[in-house]
Amino acid sequence: MKKVNSLGARIFQYFMQGVLLLAPVFITGWFIYSVFQWLDNLIPLKFKLQGKENIYLPGLGVVIILIVITVAGYVSSFFLISKLLSFFDHLLEKTPGVKIIYGFVKDFSEAFGGKKRKFTKPVLVSIYQDDVYQVGFITNEDLKEFDLLEHVSVYIPNSYAVAGNLFLVKRARVKALDHVSPTDAMKFAISGGVADVE
């Protein structure tokens, strides 16, 4: 009976090892495939050849989207176009209703990858207890508009989620992580502390 239990335990152990080995690969593949499909379906192109049904070319929609984005980035570097885009940007920021959505999306995208990148200063911050820390990012060091001269704003991402919380804390409760890259700090925080920090 013990041998049967031992064999069952070993099979279960091998099964769990297989799950741990294959899950990251399949989940990553599924995510990339889903994003690819979503982008590709934004421009569903079908061609009709002589005497044949419509032919769908997978990936062509993604290629067109990438080309359009790249050309838009290139064209926006011209002086006249940049002035026109700046005017359009100003118009959207002043339009009632639209300005809330546009401003949020613009600020969020620029915080991650634009000229105003915000998640570049990883820190350890003590919020609830003096000797307990959370990984976060300083997003603003000047909080005069809130009458908080000794405070900084720290964004703390939630583990296994894209959401997070913003705290306004005293500088004394924040420790800079100069030796840790922002990418590693974000990975560490989002993974719940299981990702390796190089």
Rank of each mutant, 00 (worst) to 15 (best):
I190L: 05
Y155F: 14
L22V: 09
E141W: 05
A163Q: 12
P122V: 07
Y56K: 09
T95C: 03
D147M: 04
L168K: 07
V132D: 13
I69P: 00
L22W: 11
F108H: 07
A161C: 06
V63N: 00
V98Y: 08
N165P: 09
D196Y: 12
G29Q: 00
T183H: 11
F137K: 00
Q129N: 12
L84D: 06
K115W: 04
K3P: 09
V25I: 14
V132I: 13
F79R: 10
L21N: 03
E93R: 12
L166C: 06
L143C: 09
V169K: 00
A189K: 02
P58G: 02
R117A: 12
V125H: 00
V169L: 04
F104C: 02
G97M: 05
I69L: 13
I32Y: 12
F15D: 02
E53G: 15
I69T: 06
L84H: 02
K116P: 02
L60T: 10
T183E: 15
W38A: 11
L124G: 07
S6T: 14
Y102R: 01
G164R: 01
L143W: 04
F188L: 07
F36E: 07
N41Y: 10
A172I: 13
R117C: 07
K121G: 07
L166Y: 11
I65P: 00
A23D: 10
R117Y: 04
P96W: 05
S191G: 06
L57I: 15
S76E: 03
G8Y: 09
I138A: 02
I32V: 15
A172H: 10
N165Q: 11
K52W: 13
A195G: 02
E93S: 09
D142L: 02
Y33G: 13
L91T: 15
K115Y: 06
F146Y: 15
S153K: 03
A185Y: 00
L80Q: 12
R173N: 14
P96H: 03
D40A: 09
A9S: 12
E93L: 13
G113S: 07
A185S: 04
Q37M: 10
E53T: 14
Y33L: 10
G29S: 02
I65S: 01
K187V: 04
P24L: 03
F119S: 02
T183C: 01
P157A: 01
N140S: 14
S109F: 08
F119G: 04
Y133P: 01
Q129P: 01
V197P: 01
S153D: 05
I27A: 12
G114I: 13
F88G: 08
F15A: 03
F78P: 01
I101K: 01
S86F: 04
E145I: 09
A9T: 13
K99M: 09
I100G: 04
G136T: 08
L149S: 04
D184F: 10
D40T: 13
D107V: 06
A72G: 03
P44A: 14
D147N: 13
F12D: 04
F87T: 11
F47M: 11
F119W: 09
A195N: 08
D142S: 09
L148M: 08
N41E: 11
R10H: 10
S76Y: 05
N5L: 14
K52L: 11
Y14D: 12
G29N: 04
V75I: 15
F79H: 14
F78M: 11
A23L: 14
M16G: 01
S6W: 11
T139H: 05
H179D: 15
V132N: 08
P157W: 00
N158A: 07
F167T: 00
